[in-house]
């Protein structure tokens, strides 16, 4: 292996590889938000909901945590969404795009994991918090919104930052259904240049950097919303 050839290949590939960052970032943002939007209500339902609802949430979590991302991508992209997008009225809304499928899969899976992060945080709060809110005449919905969630969400940030780095790594699987993110570009450029070693390194470094940036950003957020005397808890 000629080192300078490898280095030049790496340098030349950089702009193309970095072009994948936008797709990767889109996948992560989309799926994190979807995961958050579904994960918070799921966690509340799993803690405070009536028994059948709690069961249903557990089933949902079991399903999405038990099936590999890769298999889910195939189920959604080659199966469900391909089928749905052929139904009348659903043909033109982009259901058959690989990006949609990937965000959906990553987001739904993440919602299952995020719901468990939030659930852990809610359950780590002293039980008296809810009681005290009720004693003031708050409805349960008010108590959860103004007392429980503001505390639980703060406690969830370390778990959330963990979830970010997991999503980042899982997002690389989207290449299997044709999203042209970093991994997809690495593969195609490696096969044309016959320099897979340097391409793997470049991709590795980019992912590494993205992990670092996100984790750093979330820890800044954590400091910003920190409340005096609140101790940081380990990832739940």
């Amino acid at each position: 292996m000629d080192f300078s050839v490898a280095f030049n290949a790496a340098r030349d590939s950089l702009p193309y590889m970095l072009g994948g960052v936008g797709w990767t970032a889109g996948l992560i943002c989309g799926s994190m938000l979807l995961g958050l939007a579904l994960g918070v209500p799921l966690s509340v339902l799993q803690v405070y909901g009536p028994k059948p609802v709690r069961r249903a949430v557990s089933l949902y979590v079991w399903l999405f945590r038990g099936i590999p991302i890769l298999v889910q991508l195939y189920i959604f992209y080659f199966g469900l969404l391909a089928w749905l997008s052929q139904l009348p009225g659903l043909t033109d809304i982009g259901l058959d795009s690989p990006f949609t499928a990937a965000v959906l899969v990553l987001g739904l899976t993440s919602s299952a994991y995020q719901s468990q992060i939030f659930r852990g945080a809610i359950q780590s709060l002293p039980g008296g918090q809810l009681k005290a809110a009720r004693a003031l005449g708050m409805t349960d919905a008010q108590a959860i919104r103004t007392v429980i969630l503001p505390q639980a969400l703060r406690l969830s940030i370390p778990g959330w930052s963990n979830e970010y780095s997991i999503l980042l790594k899982d997002s690389a699987l989207a290449f299997t259904i044709g999203v042209v993110e970093i991994m997809a570009r690495m593969r195609s450029i490696a096969s044309t240049t016959h320099e897979p070693v340097s391409m793997a390194f470049v991709a590795g470094i980019i992912f590494f950097a993205l992990t670092w940036v996100g984790v750093k950003g979330l820890s800044l957020l954590e400091n910003k919303v920190r409340i005096a005397g609140y101790t940081r808890q380990g990832a739940v």
């Binding site: 709060l125 002293p126 008296g128 918090q129 009681k131 005290a132 809110a133 009720r134 004693a135 003031l136 005449g137 708050m138 409805t139 007392v147 503001p150 505390q151 703060r154 409340i227 609140y230």
Partner: peptide, 24 residues
């Protein structure tokens, strides 16, 4: 009646042994 319960609780103040201040 949830409504009645909430308005009742507004009129009954409660102090707990372990304070239960909202920590955030």
């Amino acid at each position: 009646s949830k409504k009645e319960l909430c308005s009742f609780r507004q009129q009954v103040g409660m102090i707990f042994q372990d304070f239960n201040l909202f920590d955030h």
